[in-house]
Amino acid sequence: MTDSGASACPAVEFHDVTVAYGRRPVLWNIDLVIKAPGLFGILGPNGAGKSTLLKAALGLVPLVGGRVTLFGRPLAEVRSRIGYVPQRETVDWDFPVNVMDVVLMGTYARLGWWRRPGAAERDRARAALERVGLVDLAGRQIGRLSGGQQQRVFLARALAQDAELYFLDEPLAGVDVRSQERIFRVLDDLRREGRLVVVVHHDLRTAADWFDGAALVDMRLVAAGPTAAVLTPENLRRTYAGHIDVLDELGRAVERGGRTA
C-alpha cells in the first residue's frame, strides 16, 4: 500500500475503551497505542479480557465507552487492511471444507458479494499455504489435521487476506513445537515486511523471546511498552495477583530471564 497514513498514525489506538458482558466489566478504561511495524504480545491471566481486547479492535463486541482507531481511522474504513486469526476452538473442524477452501475464505472480502474465487485467488491461497508449509495438504478435510496444522491453516487464511495489520488470538494454544516455530517464523517475516502483528498469548515464558512490544492486561491495562520493560516482577505481581498458582512459576521464569522456551 502506498498510503502515507500508515506510517504517520499509530496502527492501533485504544482510547478509554470499556467493554462489559451484561453488567460485568471485562475491560476498563484501556488506553493503548501500538505502532507498526512489530510483533506485539497481549499478555495476562485467563479471563483478563485479552481476547476481548482484540474483538473490541475488530468491532466484534460492542464498546460501552471509548473508541478504537486503526491507522488513525475508524475500523469500517480500513477493514481491508486488517487480518484476523480467531481462536481455533471457535469453529467446527468437522465442517465439510478442505484446507484450500478455508484459506480461500481469506480472499472473500475483496471479492465481494456473489463473485467466486478464480485463478488469482487460488494462486494467492497456494502461496499462503506454501508459507506455512501445508501446500501438500491443500485437499485434505480440515478435521484430519493436527492442532498445529489447523492453526497454520488459519494463519494461511489470514496471509491470503494480505493485510498490513494482523490480530491473532492464541495462535499457539495446543500447538506442537514444530508448528510453533513455523508460525513464529511467519510472524517474524511479516514484521520484517513492515507490518504490525498483535498476538494474544498466554505463555509468559516464551513472550520475552518473541515479542518486541507487549501489554499486560487484567481488565485494566497494567503496563505497556518494550517487552523487557513490561515484564518486570513488579508488573507481573500486579497483573497476576490472585493467581497464586502461576505466580511461583512466573517468578522462576522471570529470574531465568524468560529464556526457558
Binding site: 466484534l60 475464505m105 472473500y108 487476506q161
Partner: peptide
Amino acid sequence: WAGLKEATLVSFDPAFAAATGW
C-alpha cells in the same frame, strides 16, 4: 447457489466473517 460462498463462510466461521466485514 448464488450465495453459496457467503453462506459457507458464515456457517463455518461467523467471527472471521464479521471481522472481514460481512
